[in-house]
Design a protein around this nucleic acid. Structure first.
Lengths: 244, 244
DNA sequence: CCAAAAGTGTTTTCGTTACACCCATGC
DNA sequence: GCATGGGTGTAACGAAAACACTTTTGG
């Protein structure tokens, strides 16, 4: 007869029938380069999905916190420590991984591509334009779409995009970034007006250099106005948003 | 030497070191009764949390989809089939369950309390007022709060609350429900105006009965305007919301 | 002087808020 | 007739959208 589980308040199987699941984290790491939103992907080396792009993920260690695992993966892959990271959703269809029952928790992350050196020649790690990615390994295409949707919603209300930009940037760069993420055109005057009203920016009194036209002013993100690490969980939501 | 895992693209442990996690679903089942928002809880029978309230949860079966599991739990506990259910977040701190590493996916659900008969005397299943619940077993207090926050955000934009009401209801009942969830007072005239503008309601040309005052008109939810099952995933978001 | 992008205000529209009086019913 | 909640409209405000011309720089 089956051993009665400590989970008898749950169900009727023995413990060993249940403790057979693996947990992974998959990170959708967004970056911004050449006026395009990009995502960090790697060629999959599993036979079933040979040659397809996959997200950066890893199994969570038996005693590791999920969030700790996601920071670890990010650190291992990008070398970056202090990045924006946020849990999005958990995916766990029974057939989603060929090696067995693997549940994955999806996180999205925003990094400044220029701030770190990937060993891009190795292991086919690669920044891929988000708008131009079709098939992926496992259910990673669905995970990417889900994270992209979440990103689009949150940048309307929270100052997340600064994680994708260098410390100094022009308003044009900022607007191009919003346009790239939202995949739309924005009105320049309204965009500028709104950002100044929101008080997210600090004027550095510096100008762009080496641009083949009139140089724009440079700004930095108004950190002090928000917590140290700007997280989507901070309740600094504004009533107005960055819509057209 | 350690067997090399099929997850060699992940890490370096053998498979058996990883496939030792259990997965559960916890449902935060909200209801509305006596002008209060309530949550369905049960007395915990684990020694560690003896007597504390806990959410309704169960382990996900080895080959069961997570979402399927959450519907199963809901069906088992409330007898209801066609309910609103939405994944919120996954909780997995290593020490959160005394029986081992148990990851839990939290769902919130909205049901009409009157539509089903709980065996309330059994197993201490109980509708508890949300505003009046303190300690809970495991990390369930945190899970409840997280789901409540999500509920509050979504009812501003999506027609979810109708899942908590009977088929016919008055505008007063609807407003009381919003006030209970948001824990605030709303202006009656503005509330009515907004709902009519949003076109979420159909006037049934019937009146309340047995009220000790002038009876109000009865309405039903405008189903046709939305998909069959109204889900928060439906992109029927309106630009205006139900704020004050 | 030409190309390219920076910088700048005003008007209109629309949604949000605040607010007070009469009406219908049960008791 | 009194208590309770139902039903109704307007004015002021603020956010969002639409929209065009002049300026500065590099080449």
């Amino acid at each position: 007869m089956k051993k009665i589980s400590r989970f008898s308040h749950f169900g009727e199987l023995g413990d060993k029938d249940y403790f057979r699941i693996a947990l992974s984290v998959d990170c959708v790491i967004f970056g911004f380069e050449d006026n395009e939103l990009k995502v960090l992907v790697i060629k999959c080396n599993l036979n079933e999905y040979k040659g397809k792009w996959s997200l950066l993920g890893d199994l969570v260690k038996p005693d590791e916190d999920i969030e700790t695992a996601s920071y670890r993966i990010l650190k291992e892959r990008t070398g970056l420590n202090d990045v924006y990271l946020e849990q999005v959703r958990t995916f766990g269809k029974p057939g989603r991984h060929p090696a067995g029952r693997v549940i994955t928790v999806a996180y999205f992350s925003l990094v400044n591509i220029k701030n770190h050196k990937l060993k891009l020649s190795d292991n086919e790690l690669h920044w891929h334009p988000v708008n131009d990615i079709q098939e992926m390994a496992f259910d990673h295409r669905e995970i990417l779409q889900c994270c992209l949707d979440q990103l689009r919603e949150k940048i309307e209300d929270y100052p997340l995009v600064f994680n994708l930009l260098p410390g100094k940037f022009s308003l044009r760069e900022l607007q191009c970034l919003y346009e790239a993420i939202l995949n739309t055109k924005l009105d320049r005057r309204n965009f500028r007006k709104k950002f100044f009203m929101m008080d997210w920016l600090i004027d550095l009194d510096e100008l762009e250099v080496d641009v083949p036209h009139r140089p724009g002013k440079l700004y930095k993100f108004n950190q002090e106005k928000f917590g140290k690490a700007v997280s989507g969980m901070d309740r600094n939501k504004r009533t107005n948003s960055v819509h057209r």
